[in-house]
Protein backbone atom coordinates (compact mmCIF):
# COMPACT_ATOMS: atom_id res chain seq x y z
CA UNK A 1 0.00 0.00 0.00
CA UNK A 2 2.66 2.40 1.04
CA UNK A 3 4.59 1.70 -2.12
CA UNK A 4 1.77 1.58 -4.62
CA UNK A 5 0.16 4.87 -3.71
CA UNK A 6 3.10 7.08 -4.74
CA UNK A 7 3.42 5.05 -7.92
CA UNK A 8 -0.24 5.57 -8.68
CA UNK A 9 0.11 9.29 -8.07
CA UNK A 10 3.09 9.39 -10.38
CA UNK A 11 1.21 7.58 -13.12
CA UNK A 12 -1.73 9.90 -12.67
CA UNK A 13 0.65 12.84 -12.96
CA UNK A 14 1.99 11.46 -16.23
CA UNK A 15 -1.50 11.04 -17.64
CA UNK A 16 -2.56 14.48 -16.53
CA UNK A 17 0.56 16.06 -18.01
CA UNK A 18 -0.08 14.38 -21.33
CA UNK A 19 -3.71 15.52 -21.36
CA UNK A 20 -2.73 19.03 -20.40
CA UNK A 21 -0.12 19.19 -23.11
CA UNK A 22 -2.17 17.50 -25.83
CA UNK A 23 -3.54 20.68 -27.46
CA UNK A 24 0.02 21.92 -27.89
CA UNK A 25 1.06 18.52 -29.16
CA UNK A 26 -1.77 18.58 -31.70
CA UNK A 27 -0.57 21.95 -32.92
CA UNK A 28 3.03 20.83 -33.28
CA UNK A 29 2.06 17.60 -35.05
CA UNK A 30 -0.67 18.86 -37.37
CA UNK A 31 1.76 21.20 -39.07
CA UNK A 32 3.38 18.13 -40.58
CA UNK A 33 0.18 16.62 -41.94
CA UNK A 34 -1.57 17.19 -45.24
CA UNK A 35 -4.68 19.34 -45.21
CA UNK A 36 -6.80 16.25 -45.74
CA UNK A 37 -5.26 14.38 -42.81
CA UNK A 38 -5.39 17.38 -40.54
CA UNK A 39 -9.16 17.27 -40.18
CA UNK A 40 -9.58 13.57 -39.39
CA UNK A 41 -11.07 12.85 -35.96
CA UNK A 42 -9.71 11.24 -33.87
CA UNK A 43 -6.38 12.57 -35.08
CA UNK A 44 -4.27 9.95 -36.81
CA UNK A 45 -1.15 9.13 -34.87
CA UNK A 46 0.63 7.24 -37.59
CA UNK A 47 0.98 9.35 -40.67
CA UNK A 48 3.58 10.24 -43.20
CA UNK A 49 5.01 13.58 -42.11
CA UNK A 50 5.24 16.18 -44.83
CA UNK A 51 7.33 19.32 -44.86
CA UNK A 52 5.11 20.77 -47.57
CA UNK A 53 3.24 23.18 -45.26
CA UNK A 54 6.40 24.36 -43.62
CA UNK A 55 7.92 24.97 -47.03
CA UNK A 56 4.86 26.91 -48.19
CA UNK A 57 4.92 29.03 -45.06
CA UNK A 58 8.63 29.58 -45.33
CA UNK A 59 8.33 30.56 -49.00
CA UNK A 60 5.69 33.09 -48.03
CA UNK A 61 8.48 34.91 -46.22
CA UNK A 62 8.26 33.72 -42.63
CA UNK A 63 11.94 34.44 -42.00
CA UNK A 64 11.52 38.21 -42.28
CA UNK A 65 8.70 38.16 -39.75
CA UNK A 66 10.66 35.98 -37.34
CA UNK A 67 13.56 38.41 -37.69
CA UNK A 68 11.36 41.39 -36.85
CA UNK A 69 9.91 39.58 -33.87
CA UNK A 70 13.33 38.59 -32.60
CA UNK A 71 14.77 42.10 -32.90
CA UNK A 72 11.76 43.73 -31.28
CA UNK A 73 11.43 41.22 -28.45
CA UNK A 74 15.10 41.12 -27.55
CA UNK A 75 15.73 44.85 -27.79
CA UNK A 76 12.65 45.73 -25.80
CA UNK A 77 13.50 43.16 -23.14
CA UNK A 78 17.01 44.53 -22.72
CA UNK A 79 15.71 48.09 -22.62
CA UNK A 80 13.01 47.23 -20.10
CA UNK A 81 15.63 45.67 -17.86
CA UNK A 82 17.97 48.65 -18.19
CA UNK A 83 15.19 51.04 -17.25
CA UNK A 84 13.38 48.82 -14.80
CA UNK A 85 16.10 47.22 -12.72
CA UNK A 86 17.57 50.50 -11.38
CA UNK A 87 14.09 51.74 -10.60
CA UNK A 88 13.27 48.52 -8.79
CA UNK A 89 16.56 48.79 -6.90
CA UNK A 90 15.71 52.31 -5.83
CA UNK A 91 12.23 51.31 -4.72
CA UNK A 92 13.49 48.32 -2.77
CA UNK A 93 16.75 49.51 -1.27
CA UNK A 94 16.70 53.26 -1.07
CA UNK A 95 14.63 55.78 0.71
CA UNK A 96 12.01 56.93 -1.73
CA UNK A 97 9.12 59.11 -0.80
CA UNK A 98 5.83 57.38 -1.49
CA UNK A 99 7.51 54.28 -2.82
CA UNK A 100 4.23 52.42 -2.71
CA UNK A 101 2.52 55.08 -4.78
CA UNK A 102 5.25 54.98 -7.39
CA UNK A 103 4.91 51.23 -7.58
CA UNK A 104 1.16 51.50 -7.83
CA UNK A 105 1.52 54.03 -10.62
CA UNK A 106 3.77 51.68 -12.55
CA UNK A 107 1.25 48.89 -12.22
CA UNK A 108 -1.64 51.18 -13.06
CA UNK A 109 -0.16 51.92 -16.48
CA UNK A 110 -0.96 48.34 -17.35
CA UNK A 111 -4.65 48.75 -16.64
CA UNK A 112 -5.72 50.43 -19.85
CA UNK A 113 -6.22 47.84 -22.56
CA UNK A 114 -4.15 48.32 -25.70
CA UNK A 115 -7.33 48.83 -27.73
CA UNK A 116 -8.04 51.93 -25.65
CA UNK A 117 -4.94 53.84 -26.70
CA UNK A 118 -4.42 52.53 -30.19
CA UNK A 119 -5.90 55.52 -32.01
CA UNK A 120 -3.85 58.15 -30.15
CA UNK A 121 -0.73 56.05 -30.57
CA UNK A 122 -1.49 55.58 -34.25
CA UNK A 123 -1.87 59.32 -34.77
CA UNK A 124 1.33 60.15 -32.89
CA UNK A 125 3.34 57.54 -34.74
CA UNK A 126 1.96 58.81 -38.02
CA UNK A 127 3.13 62.33 -37.20
CA UNK A 128 6.58 61.01 -36.28
CA UNK A 129 6.75 58.90 -39.42
CA UNK A 130 7.20 55.82 -37.26
CA UNK A 131 4.28 53.75 -38.52
CA UNK A 132 5.37 50.30 -39.60
CA UNK A 133 8.77 50.70 -37.95
CA UNK A 134 10.56 48.40 -35.56
CA UNK A 135 11.51 51.31 -33.35
CA UNK A 136 7.86 52.04 -32.58
CA UNK A 137 7.24 48.48 -31.46
CA UNK A 138 10.45 48.45 -29.42
CA UNK A 139 9.39 51.59 -27.57
CA UNK A 140 5.87 50.33 -26.95
CA UNK A 141 6.94 46.90 -25.75
CA UNK A 142 9.58 48.45 -23.52
CA UNK A 143 6.99 50.67 -21.89
CA UNK A 144 4.69 47.69 -21.61
CA UNK A 145 7.32 45.62 -19.80
CA UNK A 146 9.03 48.17 -17.55
CA UNK A 147 6.25 48.00 -14.93
CA UNK A 148 6.56 44.22 -14.90
CA UNK A 149 10.32 44.47 -14.40
CA UNK A 150 9.99 47.06 -11.65
CA UNK A 151 7.41 45.05 -9.83
CA UNK A 152 9.12 41.68 -10.03
CA UNK A 153 12.67 42.92 -9.48
CA UNK A 154 11.62 44.97 -6.52
CA UNK A 155 10.58 41.90 -4.60
CA UNK A 156 13.79 40.12 -5.57
CA UNK A 157 15.88 43.01 -4.29
CA UNK A 158 13.89 43.03 -1.10
CA UNK A 159 14.71 39.39 -0.55
CA UNK A 160 18.45 40.00 -0.46
CA UNK A 161 19.54 39.36 3.10
CA UNK A 162 20.71 42.49 4.79
CA UNK A 163 23.86 40.78 6.04
CA UNK A 164 25.12 40.14 2.53
CA UNK A 165 25.05 43.77 1.57
CA UNK A 166 26.40 44.80 4.91
CA UNK A 167 29.32 42.44 4.40
CA UNK A 168 29.95 43.96 1.01
CA UNK A 169 29.94 47.41 2.47
CA UNK A 170 32.52 46.46 5.03
CA UNK A 171 34.68 45.44 2.09
CA UNK A 172 34.12 48.89 0.71
CA UNK A 173 31.95 47.83 -2.18
CA UNK A 174 29.46 50.63 -2.16
CA UNK A 175 27.70 52.63 -4.79
CA UNK A 176 27.92 51.50 -8.37
CA UNK A 177 30.52 48.92 -7.57
CA UNK A 178 28.50 47.46 -4.78
CA UNK A 179 25.53 47.30 -7.06
CA UNK A 180 27.31 45.50 -9.84
CA UNK A 181 29.57 43.32 -7.71
CA UNK A 182 27.29 42.22 -4.95
CA UNK A 183 23.66 43.09 -5.48
CA UNK A 184 23.25 42.25 -9.14
CA UNK A 185 24.78 38.75 -9.01
CA UNK A 186 22.47 37.94 -6.14
CA UNK A 187 19.36 38.72 -8.15
CA UNK A 188 20.61 37.11 -11.34
CA UNK A 189 18.07 34.29 -11.31
CA UNK A 190 15.41 36.94 -10.75
CA UNK A 191 16.66 38.95 -13.72
CA UNK A 192 16.68 35.91 -15.93
CA UNK A 193 13.14 34.92 -15.07
CA UNK A 194 11.94 38.51 -15.45
CA UNK A 195 13.67 38.79 -18.81
CA UNK A 196 12.05 35.56 -19.91
CA UNK A 197 8.60 36.85 -19.04
CA UNK A 198 9.26 40.15 -20.82
CA UNK A 199 10.45 38.33 -23.89
CA UNK A 200 7.44 36.04 -23.95
CA UNK A 201 4.99 38.92 -23.56
CA UNK A 202 6.73 40.93 -26.26
CA UNK A 203 7.00 37.97 -28.60
CA UNK A 204 3.34 37.07 -28.17
CA UNK A 205 1.99 40.63 -28.34
CA UNK A 206 -0.67 40.71 -30.98
CA UNK A 207 -2.70 43.88 -31.03
CA UNK A 208 -0.04 46.57 -31.43
CA UNK A 209 1.78 44.37 -33.88
CA UNK A 210 -1.24 43.93 -36.11
CA UNK A 211 -2.40 47.52 -35.84
CA UNK A 212 0.83 49.42 -36.28
CA UNK A 213 2.80 47.48 -38.85
CA UNK A 214 2.23 46.29 -42.39
CA UNK A 215 5.38 45.11 -44.14
CA UNK A 216 8.62 46.66 -42.91
CA UNK A 217 8.16 45.78 -39.26
CA UNK A 218 5.42 43.15 -39.24
CA UNK A 219 5.99 40.58 -36.52
CA UNK A 220 5.28 36.88 -36.34
CA UNK A 221 1.77 37.19 -34.86
CA UNK A 222 0.88 39.42 -37.81
CA UNK A 223 2.12 36.82 -40.23
CA UNK A 224 0.20 34.17 -38.40
CA UNK A 225 -2.99 36.16 -38.35
CA UNK A 226 -3.00 36.22 -42.13
CA UNK A 227 -3.51 32.46 -41.97
CA UNK A 228 -6.11 32.54 -39.25
CA UNK A 229 -9.28 33.18 -41.19
CA UNK A 230 -8.11 32.24 -44.60
CA UNK A 231 -10.71 30.83 -46.91
CA UNK A 232 -10.51 27.14 -47.58
CA UNK A 233 -9.00 24.30 -45.62
CA UNK A 234 -6.05 25.59 -43.76
CA UNK A 235 -5.66 23.77 -40.44
CA UNK A 236 -2.37 22.18 -41.45
CA UNK A 237 -0.90 25.39 -42.84
CA UNK A 238 -2.22 27.29 -39.83
CA UNK A 239 -0.57 24.77 -37.53
CA UNK A 240 2.69 25.10 -39.40
CA UNK A 241 2.77 28.83 -39.10
CA UNK A 242 1.55 28.72 -35.50
CA UNK A 243 4.30 26.25 -34.68
CA UNK A 244 6.85 28.64 -36.12
CA UNK A 245 5.24 31.46 -34.18
CA UNK A 246 5.11 29.79 -30.79
CA UNK A 247 8.25 27.68 -30.95
CA UNK A 248 10.84 30.34 -30.04
CA UNK A 249 8.97 31.38 -26.92
CA UNK A 250 8.15 27.77 -26.10
CA UNK A 251 11.70 26.49 -26.44
CA UNK A 252 13.05 29.43 -24.50
CA UNK A 253 10.51 28.67 -21.81
CA UNK A 254 11.49 25.01 -21.74
CA UNK A 255 15.15 25.81 -21.29
CA UNK A 256 14.76 28.52 -18.72
CA UNK A 257 11.93 27.13 -16.60
CA UNK A 258 14.44 25.98 -14.00
CA UNK A 259 15.67 29.56 -13.84
CA UNK A 260 12.09 30.72 -13.69
CA UNK A 261 11.42 28.59 -10.64
CA UNK A 262 14.70 29.69 -9.08
CA UNK A 263 13.91 33.27 -9.88
CA UNK A 264 10.51 33.04 -8.32
CA UNK A 265 11.91 31.21 -5.32
CA UNK A 266 14.52 33.78 -4.39
CA UNK A 267 13.12 33.84 -0.89
CA UNK A 268 14.87 30.53 -0.30
CA UNK A 269 18.19 32.37 -0.31
CA UNK A 270 17.18 33.77 3.01
CA UNK A 271 16.74 30.41 4.71
Amino acid sequence: MKRTLPLLITIATYALAFLYFSPVLWLLVTGFKTEGEAIIVPPSILFEPTLENLRLVWDAGASAFIGHSAIVSMTSTVLALILGVPAAYALAMLKVKKADDVLFWFISTKMLPAVGVIIPIYLVLKELGLLDSLIALVLLYTAMNVPLVVWMMRSFFKDIPYETIEAGRVDGATGLQGFFKITLPLVRPGIISTALLCFVFAWNEFFFGVSLTSTNAATMPVFMSSYMTQQGLFWAKMSSVATLAVLPALVLGWFTQRQLVRGLTMGAVKG
Binding site: I71, T75, L79, S133, L134, I135, A217
Partner: peptide
Protein backbone atom coordinates in the same frame (compact mmCIF):
# COMPACT_ATOMS: atom_id res chain seq x y z
CA UNK B 1 20.20 49.18 -28.73
CA UNK B 2 17.69 51.33 -30.55
CA UNK B 3 20.21 51.90 -33.25
CA UNK B 4 20.26 48.34 -34.41
CA UNK B 5 16.63 47.98 -35.46
CA UNK B 6 16.67 51.41 -37.01
CA UNK B 7 19.65 50.57 -39.13
CA UNK B 8 18.24 47.26 -39.99
CA UNK B 9 15.11 48.88 -41.21
CA UNK B 10 16.85 51.35 -43.43
CA UNK B 11 15.50 54.81 -43.91
CA UNK B 12 11.99 53.97 -42.88
CA UNK B 13 12.48 53.87 -39.17
CA UNK B 14 15.36 56.28 -39.08
CA UNK B 15 13.55 59.43 -38.16
Amino acid sequence: ACGSPANNDGSNAAS
